[in-house]
Design a protein around this nucleic acid. Structure first.
Lengths: 155, 155
DNA sequence: TGACGATGGTTCGCGATACCAACTAATGTC
DNA sequence: GACATTAGTTGGTATCGCGAACCATCGTCA
């Protein structure tokens, strides 16, 4: 394959981002599959590691319509990984909390995803990693100011 | 928002990648929505800009099961954006080719996605952009050698 | 207190995704 | 010419994500 070297050299900034995105997506899918769960469900679990979150807040964090989230939570709840905890103050609201098993799975998945990505980056000089991270942080910050809130893996 | 600065500073390498991935995904979804089409279909179209591609090759490029691809192509074909061209040499095979309208849409979408991402990165110094691009290229190359072929936006 | 708009979630119906297993048809090989 | 291989499709299932309509509860304002 002449591709590896030549094509990537030719790679534009945008194309690089798109490919990278797919790579990450792929890692996420692999890890999820290992744990016999869907990527979306994994993402939801990871989002709850920091503590219970309400539906509305969750839908904002995950960029999902509330109705979509209801279904997602339903399926994950059916698997016994999360529970809807009704809020005492506001009887309409409910917090989504991890069950013990859910927490275990969440932490494992998070660890695995992080691990694989770090491994992938292991060959890169630390300086490059830091550089990349901070540049990305810049991108995210800029976009965050325009659209909404960030919030993804672990918090 | 204290978040913007503090959180992103705390961001680890892996988390940064995950968030970035979602950001790109989001851009892709937005552009697709503007063109009244789904992200997956947009991706398919973009993949064909370089010329017709067979189903098997496509499924490899898109990391999709052949059966999944059949459905995707069906829907896009139903919209008149692509056509199945039977291969003369191998009467089993068929090449997926863009129709005129499909080509128009593909180019537009590709332009828009690239445009938005570049815009997003516009604030970054050129040096950072190049750096980021080459670092990503490194990641992709490394992963490519392990898993399969890259191939995403525009070829 | 009591009507009323806003808010938190769910339900319903729909089209799209993606997988797996099984299947058809054409290739290639020995 | 039988047989394993390869290219794609079909069928069935679970999931995803959206929008519109809807219920229950809150908060407010009179």
């Amino acid at each position: 394959m002449t591709t590896t070297t030549e094509a990537t050299t030719e790679l534009g900034f945008a194309a690089a981002l798109v490919r990278l995105s797919h790579l990450v997506q792929h890692v996420f899918a692999d890890v999820s599959r290992d744990h016999d769960i869907t990527p979306q469900q994994t993402q939801l679990l990871c989002m709850l590691i920091g503590g219970p979150v309400g539906m509305t807040e969750l839908s904002r964090l995950m960029h999902l319509e509330k109705s979509s989230l209801t279904g997602l939570v339903d399926r994950v709840e059916r698997r016994g990984l999360v529970a809807r905890v009704r809020d005492a103050r506001d009887r309409r609201a409910c917090q989504i909390a991890l069950t013990d098993e859910g927490a275990r799975l969440a932490v494992e998945s998070h660890r695995d995803v992080t691990g694989r990505l770090d491994t992938l980056a292991g060959e890169l000089p630390d300086a490059d990693q830091e550089r990349l991270t901070s540049v990305i942080a810049g991108l995210l910050a800029q976009h965050g100011t325009l659209t909404g809130r960030p919030g993804d893996l672990a918090r």
